[in-house]
């Protein structure tokens, strides 16, 4: 299994999609950094003007909270789009992890070796998971460092946040891997991308529903989260990032990027079980499949 994981990791590193993701991530971080710089200046100018107007203690405390919330919103923006990048990277890099090797015949010689089919699946998952984990952690830290150096925003719980952040692409990896054992590369790509869109839209609907106190929208979001729990993980991250005293007004401030309707810890457990379930499903489907 480790042999396959090592080779898969090396293979994942040389994929063009990873090069494209790195270039796009650098571009994203550059644009994000520039935006962060000007947004921070604007926030601080506004704050200085409020202080200059000689307001008493109450409004100044409110202004500070506004500055703090604005900075958190900027962090959330970075993390939301970073989550999208790593999720898409997970889908696009692993969409043909098994199917393309069956289609081009690379897997044939491997199948006659003294290895179990489930070890092939676990090895493939391990290789891609390692690449995605390193990539996600670096992207997450880049967003955090930009916020720290440009906006002066520091976060606590960084190891926990990174761990949660990494779960997102790994869930998509598990689903795409399972799809890759049963469908063609193209069909799997379409299915996984649709699931990604459904997850993002469902998450947004749930937040809007919470803002509007609309149960139907919230329930739609919950059902979507059960079908694809990645957005819930993002909301958990958002909840931890924006965890500042101030009541619901703060949560509302972050709009669809925040976590007005914050998921429970059980959702993280569910996401991990979901991930493991799909890796198990991939293993089951692959072990039953004829490799023609």
């Amino acid at each position: 299994m480790l042999t396959i994981a090592r080779l898969t990791f090396k293979e994942a590193l040389r994929k063009k999609i990873l090069v494209a993701a790195i270039i796009l991530s650098v571009l994203f971080l550059t644009v994000y950094g520039v935006g962060l710089h000007y947004a921070t200046n604007a926030i601080e100018q506004e704050n200085a003007q409020s202080a200059g107007r000689g307001m008493d203690d109450g409004p100044i405390a409110g202004a500070d909270m506004m500055v703090e919330s604005s900075k958190k919103l900027l962090v959330l923006l970075g993390l939301y789009f970073s989550s999208s990048i790593v999720s898409l990277l997970a889908i696009l890099s692993s969409v043909g992890v098994v199917s393309s090797e069956i289609e081009n015949g690379i897997i044939h010689a491997m199948m006659a070796k003294p290895i179990r089919r489930r070890d092939i699946i676990l090895g493939k998952f391990g290789g891609y998971a390692a690449m995605l984990s390193v990539y996600s952690a670096l992207l997450f830290l880049s967003v955090l460092l930009l916020n720290y150096f440009i906006a002066g925003a520091a976060l606590g719980n960084v190891p926990l946040l990174i761990a949660l952040f990494i779960i997102q692409p790994l869930v998509f990896l598990a689903v795409t891997l399972a799809g890759s054992t049963a469908f063609s590369t193209l069909a799997n790509g379409i299915a996984a991308f649709t699931l990604y869109i459904a997850s993002a839209v469902g998450g947004m609907l749930e937040q809007i529903g919470a803002m509007l106190n609309n149960d139907m929208l919230v329930n739609t979001g919950i059902v979507t989260s059960l079908l694809m729990p990645v957005d819930s993980i993002y909301r958990m991250i958002a909840s931890l990032v924006t965890n500042v005293p101030g009541g619901s007004i703060n949560a509302m401030f972050f709009g669809p990027f925040g976590a007005i309707s914050a998921p429970s810890t059980a959702m993280v457990v569910y996401a991990i079980l979901y991930l493991a379930g799909f890796v198990g499903l991939a293993s089951f489907l692959f072990s039953r499949r004829d490799i023609g």
């Binding site: 293979e11 690379i106 006659a112």
Partner: peptide
């Protein structure tokens, strides 16, 4: 038993 087996597939393709 596959430890004692060798196989060259028809449409051989490798990394």
């Amino acid at each position: 038993a596959r430890r004692r087996l060798g196989f060259l597939p028809e449409n051989f393709r490798y990394q």
